[in-house]
């Protein structure tokens, strides 16, 4: 028996919008720790890891570990039917091939339930060890989204380089080139507008912008994004979900031929 009640149901709506374009089908794992997912895109270039910790739910009952295969497209369709202020409850019985999403309006005058078919999915889990990153950039998520969108109109790839001067995003396309430098800005009055660069070593890596723009769909989840870079490692783009967990995207860099 599984029963998870989330008063701030809009978080789940935003999570689905943040991952459904990258991954079509995925197994959601439910355990005492929380509600989680790890999935790769179909070309195995990018990976998304989601964690919603059990403590973040108003009610969390998960009698045994469960892995439930879902079409993220269909799950997003169902969650779109929930109001932004609705309380969302996820329910599943042991051995059932369906999951139920219940939406309650804040005043309890409207209650809806949507039952969705589960599916069998063969998924490949990767072990991602904790790593020390050479550079960690924290910046406003909206700024990062804007940069990826702008550069995506000019080129297909972005070169991200972190030096003592700041973080530089560069691209090159048929019409020309673009460079955007963001300097450290430890805005004390407005921490959500700060850009903070922790650098052990200068690092330069190249990534496909298409994926970065897909990651930026998580922008409504967090005011800040953390970008962790090391040469020879996938970049980690993390959006923290307040009090609950995170959505992390891993993207393999472009490598020399």
């Amino acid at each position: 028996m599984l029963e998870l009640r989330l008063v701030q149901g809009s978080i789940l709506k935003k999570v689905l919008e943040a991952i459904k374009d990258l991954v079509n089908d995925a197994n959601f794992d439910c355990s005492a720790t929380g509600f989680s997912l790890q999935a790769m895109d179909s070309s195995h270039v990018a990976l998304v890891a989601l964690l919603l910790r059990s403590e973040g739910f108003e009610h969390y009952r998960c009698d045994r570990n469960l892995s439930m295969g879902m079409s993220l497209t269909n799950m997003a369709k169902m969650l779109k039917c929930a109001g932004n202020d609705d309380i969302v409850t996820i329910k599943a019985d042991d051995g059932s091939d369906t999951i139920t999403f219940m939406f309650e309006s804040p005043t309890q005058d409207k209650i809806a339930d949507f039952e969705m078919k589960l599916m069998d999915i063969d998924s490949e889990h990767l072990g991602i060890p904790e790593a020390e990153y050479e550079a960690i950039v924290r910046m406003p998520s909206s700024e990062f989204a804007r940069i990826c969108k702008d550069l995506g109109t000019i080129g297909d790839t972005v070169v991200i380089s972190v030096t003592k001067e700041g973080v530089k995003f560069s691209t090159r396309g048929d019409i020309g080139t673009a460079n955007i430098v963001c300097r450290q800005n430890t805005s004390i009055d407005k921490p959500e507008e700060a850009t903070i660069i922790e650098m052990q070593e200068p690092v330069t890596l190249t990534f496909a912008l298409r994926y970065m723009n897909s990651f930026a769909k998580a922008t409504p989840l967090a005011t800040q994004v953390t970008i962790s870079l090391s040469s020879e490692l996938p970049v980690v783009v993390e959006y923290k979900i307040a009090e609950m967990g995170y959505v992390r995207y891993y993207l393999a860099p472009k490598i020399e031929e």
Binding site: M40, S43, A46, L126, T206, A252, K254
Partner: peptide, 14 residues
């Protein structure tokens, strides 16, 4: 030129 890396080139399945 650069080639697109794959997650399997960096992390192991378990």
């Amino acid at each position: 030129g650069k080639l697109q890396g794959s997650m399997f080139g960096f992390y192991e399945k378990y």
